[in-house]
Amino acid sequence: MGTGRNRMIIAVASGKGGTGKTTVAANLARVRGDVTLLDCDVEEPNVHLFISGEPQGEPEVVSLLVPEVDESRCDGCAACSNFCAFKALAVLDKRVLVFAEMCHGCGGCARVCPQGAIREVPKRVGVVETMGAGGVTVVQGRLDVGVAMAPPLVRAVKAHIPKTGDAILDAPPGTSCPVVATLRETDFVVLVTEPTPFGLNDLKLAVEVVRELGLPFGVVVNRADSSDDRVTTYCREASIPILAEIPDDRRVAEAYSRGELMVDALPEYRPLFEQLYTDIVRLLQNPLIAGVARASCPCFMGGTPMPRGALQGPHC
């Protein structure tokens, strides 16, 4: 975890896709300049459509350890397939078949095999690519087609968070495992939503996740207009800061449709994102809020969240 202000990790997330998460992450990175922008939406990486750059080095191949069976030692006892919770191994006619695409890489089969017939070998799940785009370094993970194991790739992307200097993470949409893998160990979460009933419903789901993770967060309302105040009312009642409101401007939608960054196509929006960055920094310097993220409690040393209520526990 970063201490002090030498590094800040901001994640941009939303309860569902299409709310403008990538827009906020990419524009924030552009106005900030010297920053690493990490696309953790490894199933559908879209950041590169808006900020493209020169590839830096070869793509890094990310693998998972999967079982390989030595048939000369295997006696078909099925201990491995009985153990596997993910049905990645099956035994038929005393022969073991490995279905590597189902494997989570837990290593249990190799341990339970009484014959020592299973060894673990790396299997490619995707790549991590790094691009330089002006001052912004873009890092994106890309899951291979037909692979369903996003979390290991998200972790590989996050390994590129620099030791010093700020990082902005574009999270996958939703509230499932890959989202949690992205948000863990970040300093601040920006939740992007729309001022509609759908937007509010999905925002509430996302709020549940960040609250469960114990992370400080704020909301950006995208496509804001004056006709619906449900999102703002909810945020006020739940004491959630609204960091920015991006107006419902058809020109923004048009620029987006062409793959142009808002702050490039419509420079009048630059101050909005500059202010957003400043506000996040200010919020993080607020000891009350920062305390949520990096209490001196030893249970945060590993960066993993404690169960709910643990902050009040006697060990703190």
């Binding site: 153990f83 919770a85 993910f86 989570h104 837990c106 290593g107 249990g108 341990r111 949690v180 469960e212 993770l213 993993t304 969240p305 169960p307």
Partner: peptide, 11 residues
């Protein structure tokens, strides 16, 4: 065990 990180492999 952190229930959010546990993938349920049973190891």
């Amino acid at each position: 065990v952190d229930p959010i990180a546990c993938e349920g492999c049973g190891v």
